[in-house]
Design a protein around this nucleic acid. Structure first.
Ligand SMILES: [Mn+2]
Ligand SMILES: [Mn+2]
Ligand SMILES: [Zn+2]
Ligand SMILES: [Zn+2]
Lengths: 140, 140
DNA sequence: TGAAACTATTAGAATAATTATAATTGTTAC
DNA sequence: GTAACAATTATAATTATTCTAATAGTTTCA
């Protein structure tokens, strides 16, 4: 899925969430919402700096963290070596391909969780993540 | 749950899995199977070296990786900052308390997954991990 | 208006989880 | 018994991420 949003659309998307749209944030947001993929911070850093270096690694982390905090994107914890950032914030789950280190979406309706245990006393439910680990046979 | 196994029992546990029982491996195995908790590599490093330093950090990682590879323990990917190692290898799921960074077991029978999507073509199912993220209200 | 004072944003420097590789120990062959 | 080899350990290096110092933007008030 690929989306094409104008600079203005992205600007107001950020403003609507209370995020001041800076040059760096717009570049990163543009990148995230055009390719609608699961990207690591390193991926974003490489893509946003394709050609000339314009945004620091720390700013990429700051921005991704800020976007996640404000619900524009979502963190996916599946690969032990790095966090993935997911522009798709609608409820869904993931295959994690151990061989390639890539995530594949699973539509929410394809996973039916019949019963969930009671949340521990005094705790608030934040979300349920289902990770289906798969591997290409013959791979480590 | 706490288990008390003799040095001999642990030795044969390793041997049965084809792991040569060395001093370091026995110390770490003893530690893992007496406390039956979710421990990070750093936790194991601290516990095994309580008092005098005997085992290096790299050996802790090597050993935990080896144990996991041979099915003695299991890796749990829930905290973005570190991997947890779980001496409980029977199928079960986890609460992850974002506030404290601790894992809590969920017995397998308390999660009923009604339907699972078809595994992508040519891929082999490795496992299904359900992480229920919870938070103590008022915490970041 | 036009600086101070303050706040928000960025990025260079530091940290910490993990891995790569070199050193050590143990085992086999002769 | 010793040389070749294999397995194990641990030091050194890597890298994902965070900390904090520097920069840019905004508000206050003379
Ligand atoms: Mn990691
Ligand atoms: Mn990490
Ligand atoms: Zn996704
Ligand atoms: Zn567990």
């Amino acid at each position: 899925m690929t989306n094409n949003m104008s600079a203005d659309q992205i600007t107001s998307l950020l403003r609507n969430r209370g995020i001041t749209p800076t040059a760096q944030r717009l570049e990163i947001a543009e990148l995230l919402f055009s390719r609608c993929e699961h990207l690591s911070a390193e991926d974003v850093f490489q893509l946003v700096n394709a050609g000339a270096q314009r945004v620091s690694k720390a700013t990429v982390y700051n921005t991704l963290g800020l976007f996640a905090e404000h619900g524009l994107i979502r963190e996916v914890i599946a690969d032990p070596t790095k966090v993935f950032f997911d522009p798709n914030t609608t409820p869904h789950h993931h295959f994690f391909d151990i061989s390639s280190g890539k995530l594949i979406d699973i539509p929410a309706e394809q996973v039916h969780i019949g019963a969930l245990p009671e949340v521990p006393a005094g705790m608030q439910l934040e979300g349920v993540d289902v990770i289906v680990r798969v591997r290409r046979p013959g791979t480590v």
